[in-house]
Design a protein around this nucleic acid. Structure first.
Lengths: 137, 137
DNA sequence: CTTGAGCCTGTATCAACTACAGACCTTAGA
DNA sequence: TCTAAGGTCTGTAGTTGATACAGGCTCAAG
């Protein structure tokens, strides 16, 4: 069962293969999230399946809201043969806590905002419940 | 009923009066969210009650997640004698929609993340459900 | 041989702040 | 009166996570 082996692709191909923006790949390489790939004689970067896989990992992590520093931590654990499930769980649980806090924050905002907007008449009058709420402590 | 009238305070006092970071005030002045205040002969900025009120408005708006551009819009409407409740409602409702979308996004993330973390054994084994989820498409 | 696409590099921009350096001013205490 | 501490002034750089653009090479098709 040989899976589709990509021998040597260029940055644009990697972008297409992953759906990641080309400039973003460049940025990830600059900050060390992605490795500096080998170069052709003419200086063109050459990527392979391992790069595709790693970049997809990064993208899925980002999609789940992990910061690039958290992704860096996760990548370190992926590479580390001695990592344990507990190590990973720690990062993921921390992040989950962050996400839950953000949700709570936004829900508070949503309540205040929708309550206030609901008091709007929405007509041509200069009085407005939203402005009043923002002006008054 | 004379309310506490602040005749002339300096930037540090404005910061203390509002709880806003001093550098943030400076930034707001730079980008025009707050006006350039008058200066003393020695070049010290001098603020009054109107500045305190405006800055508090900005801070409450930011706290409710309005972007600085949205705040700019709201401030324009506060100042504008011809503004209507409908004008303000439009901005607030747009923002409310944004907030609701963000909540939905984070809730999706929260589900995936907590489901995945729940499958962690949390032990010293190298197999980890989180890593697996991030590695597999 | 030319044209266009793709790649290379460096640099700038965005939001919304925050931080720091070096110079000046003001005020309280000795 | 002198001095030391603290506030204020200015300009500038750094943060996160990208995105955009300019100017120069190279490569493949027609």
């Amino acid at each position: 069962m040989s899976n589709t082996s990509v021998r040597s692709i260029r940055r644009g191909d990697l972008a297409r293969a992953t759906g990641c923006n080309l400039e973003t790949i460049r940025y990830y390489e600059k900050i060390g999230i992605m490795p500096d790939p080998p170069r052709s004689t003419k200086g063109y970067r050459s990527y392979d399946n391992a790069h595709v896989k790693r970049l997809k990992f990064v993208m899925r992590s980002r999609d789940l809201g992990f910061s690039l520093e958290e992704v860096r931590g996760l990548l370190g654990l992926v590479d580390d043969r001695s990592r344990t499930c507990a190590d990973v769980q720690l990062i993921a649980e921390d992040h989950l806590t962050d996400v839950q806090a953000k949700i709570a924050d936004l829900q508070r905002i949503e309540r205040v905002l929708s309550d206030t907007v609901a008091r709007c008449t929405g007509d041509a009058a200069p009085e407005c419940a939203v402005i009043d709420a923002l002006l008054d402590a």
